[in-house]
């Protein structure tokens, strides 16, 4: 075994200090050193996307990144999505649309969609399909995954509009009050 290095990582908001070989990929470090086994490895050459995590909010392949490169970055994994036993809206959409069967690729698709929707909340179905083509799934035929991501996006849009309307109404009311 070769030289090890002390690194610090921030994963799901938690800081970690590790002494590891620099050749360890972020994926192996998450899984083996931090015990965050939700991130899966399906090909180790960046095609299947089962290891997709968020690096500073953007989806990235954890198999194509050494853990040492991830220092000072904000890493998020599938373990961060749910609030205790309460699934996130994206996770619920996946379940409702039967967008997972064996579940092996699922964490990668969830993180892919999570990062994408944060940047492109108004994405069209075609854009979502193109996004979903980033990762491989062998069970579902993809359609339910596209459906789930689209459904989640629409619900978020609706709730944003709802929120905006409420905020607008609030502002109007307070405006009236001020004018009176």
């Amino acid at each position: 075994m070769t030289d090890r290095q002390l690194i610090t990582l921030r994963v799901n908001g938690e800081p970690y200090e590790l002494v590891i070989e620099p050749r360890r990929t972020l994926a192996d470090t998450l899984r083996q050193d931090l015990g965050l086994t939700g991130t899966h490895l399906g090909c180790e050459h960046g095609i299947c996307g089962a290891c997709t995590v968020l690096v500073d909010g953007a989806p990235a392949r954890a198999c194509l990144m050494f853990a040492v490169q991830a220092e000072d970055r904000d890493i998020r994994t599938v373990e961060s999505l749910a609030d205790g036993d309460e699934l996130s809206d994206l996770q619920r959409a996946f379940s409702a649309h039967h967008a997972l069967q064996c579940g092996f690729c699922t964490p990668g698709f969830l993180m892919l969609a999570e990062g994408f929707l944060a940047e492109r909340p108004e994405a069209t179905r075609e854009e979502i399909r193109e996004l979903v083509s980033s990762n491989l799934c062998r069970c579902t035929g993809y359609q339910p995954i596209v459906d789930a991501v689209e459904d989640c996006a629409r619900r978020r849009q609706a709730s944003r509009r709802e929120h905006d309307r409420a905020a607008c109404g609030e502002a109007e009311r307070s405006g009236h009050a001020a004018g009176a």
Binding site: T37, H40, L100, G103, F104
Partner: peptide
């Protein structure tokens, strides 16, 4: 019926051999 497998698989709490 909603799948009973889903919650653990969606949260990264499934247990595959490599886990």
């Amino acid at each position: 019926v909603p799948r009973r497998e889903d919650p653990r698989l969606l949260t990264g709490r499934g247990r595959f051999v490599d886990d």
